[in-house]
């Protein structure tokens, strides 16, 4: 799953712009991850702060 470390996130929207699936949405200071996410990791790579990570954990 794609993990959002909210204590690191600067809610800038950089990740939203590069997501090829349109799975990310920034609502003020809250980044949401939609069902469309394929865990491609592009967002995690570009994040200026390192607030995103593709992990082996399964979403609950």
């Amino acid at each position: 799953m794609l993990k959002v470390y909210r204590e690191i996130c600067g809610y800038c929207g950089c990740c939203v712009a590069v997501c090829p699936e349109g799975a990310l949405e920034l609502i003020d200071a809250y980044l949401s991850v939609g069902q469309e996410c394929t865990q491609c990791g592009v967002c995690a790579k570009v994040c200026p702060l390192g607030a995103l990570e593709v992990t082996n954990e399964v979403a609950v």
């Binding site: 929207g13 712009a17 590069v18 997501c19 349109g22 920034l26 790579k45 570009v46």
Partner: peptide, 21 residues
């Protein structure tokens, strides 16, 4: 803005290539 979503919802691909972000 940069995190534009409205176009995507209308079926227009506005994704920025990673290397050009």
């Amino acid at each position: 803005g940069v995190e534009s979503k409205f176009g995507k919802w209308c079926g227009i691909d506005t994704t920025v290539p990673m290397r050009e972000m």
